[in-house]
Design a protein around this nucleic acid. Structure first.
Length: 425
DNA sequence: TCTGGGGTCCTAGGACCC
DNA sequence: TCTGGGGTCCTAGGACCC
């Protein structure tokens, strides 16, 4: 059950404070001490906030156009999200963690679990070293939470971040009842708003009370996930460090349209683009697809029309990685679910049943992937890699791209594009 | 002007088999 | 014709994560 069997083994959760905002500030020191927010992909809502913006009561998910007045009045700076920048800074932080331990799990773009070994005093000091080194070498502020299990390390990180007296590094002992009592249900990793009231019905209001619940009984009431969570809160590790990135089980590309789209041809262009992006992502991992789903929906918030949402899937007779075929199948699915007279707000393509391209199972009528198609796909990927995404694309993806996302407030790609690199005078 | 874009795991239930 | 237990596989949907 336990991957931290040694009493000297600890999980550390390191995460970057206000990650997207900190990335924007890195190249714009004038934004320090100024409220800053970063918007979602479509400039739809707020997804990251600086401390100053939090103090002004900007919330996650605030609708951009609804808070625009407040943004103006308070002098808050706004950015569209800039994933190439965040991705490149994220890998720099991971390189720093790897200087301290080779047991690193990259959990998300701004969080990593590290497995560290030592006495609690040594580990706290190591945590401080990590924090200082990331600040020095990458320029980003992090907090470090340390404990016996991943779930407790998450809580420790929260405490480190919330209480300034810990200076960003906190080690949580599993029997620290005083601290566990301060953590409400919905702030426990794995429990969100929907489970919270169900726990309250059982008289459980915080992490301490949950840690004292009977795991087996809770498993029958909820699921094995809840059982594991309780063991983790008790200090018995059930969730191991996942160092090897598992191969993807599905690849999704979906996006809201900048504006509602009524015309079939516009939606079709979007679907072609998503299908070809998905195929590209898939080839990068040397995978082939067996099943494809297209989904489509109108705005769930539209007042002038009823909500429509539908999807259609098809199975391939044999696994493929050919963009042309994948687009063709996506169009077939789209035709099945497209209803005219509606204003669509979002569509997506999902590739499923992924298998290694080297070992695809071939059926009785197996025809090897034509060499021509293989060559074409490699050339396509190579050109787009070398000269930038979309240098070459299928005509069906369209030229005007009316469905394109809004990204009006994008910062430069400081770290991934030569033309955008910062200039020092 | 009008609410992100990805993912994972688990469970229940149906279909089918012996 | 009916009954039953037990097993597997698949899919849809829920809940959660960032």
């Amino acid at each position: 059950m336990s991957s931290t069997s040694s009493p000297n083994d600890w999980f550390a959760l390191v995460d970057v404070n206000n990650f997207y905002v900190s990335c924007e500030r890195l190249f714009r020191p004038d934004l320090n001490n100024v409220p800053v927010v970063v918007l979602s992909n479509n400039d739809g809502c707020v997804i990251a906030r600086s401390q100053e913006a939090k103090n002004l009561n900007f919330s996650m998910g605030d609708i951009f156009h609804q808070v625009q007045d407040k943004i103006r009045e308070t002098g808050t700076k706004v950015f569209s999200s800039n994933y190439p920048l965040y991705g490149s800074l994220s890998s720099r932080t991971v390189k720093v963690y790897q200087q301290f331990t080779n047991r690193v799990e990259v959990y998300s773009i701004d969080e990593s679990f590290l497995l560290l070994r030592g006495s609690s005093d040594e580990i706290i000091s190591l945590g401080r070293d990590i924090k200082n080194r990331v600040l020095r070498d990458v320029g980003l502020p992090v907090c470090v939470g340390i404990a016996r299990t991943k779930t407790l390390a998450k809580i420790a990180n929260r405490i480190a971040k919330k209480h300034a007296e810990h200076a960003g590094v906190f080690l949580l002992e599993e029997n620290d009842q005083e601290q566990l009592k301060t953590i409400e249900n919905e702030d426990i990793w794995g429990i969100s708003r929907r489970l919270t009231p169900k726990l309250q019905e059982l008289g459980i209001y915080n992490a301490l009370e949950l840690s004292l619940a009977d795991p087996k009984r809770m498993r029958s009431k909820f699921s094995v996930v809840m059982e594991r969570m309780i063991y983790e809160l008790k200090g018995q590790s059930c969730l191991e460090l996942e160092e090897v990135i598992p191969t993807k089980k599905g690849i999704m590309v979906s996006r809201g349209f900048g504006q509602g789209q009524e015309h079939y041809i516009r939606v079709q262009e979007a679907v072609a683009e998503y299908a070809s992006r998905a195929a590209e992502k898939m080839r990068k991992q040397n995978l082939s697809v067996n099943r494809l789903t297209v989904f489509l929906r109108t705005s769930p918030h539209g007042k002038d029309q009823t909500y429509y949402s539908n999807s259609f899937s098809i199975n391939f007779p044999e696994a493929s990685y050919d963009t042309a075929l994948i687009i063709k199948c996506a169009f077939y699915c789209l035709k099945k679910i497209f209803r005219s007279g509606l204003k669509y707000q979002k569509a997506g393509v999902f590739l499923d049943g992924l298998v290694d391209s080297g070992s695809t199972q071939q059926d009785f009528f197996f025809k090897p992937v034509p060499e021509k198609s293989q060559k074409l796909m490699s050339m396509l990927d190579e050109l787009n890699k070398k000269h930038g995404r979309d240098t070459v694309h299928f005509a069906s993806c369209g030229v005007e791209r009316k469905h394109k996302m809004k990204q009006r407030l994008l910062s430069p790609r400081y770290t991934t594009c030569w033309d955008d690199r910062p200039v020092v005078f």
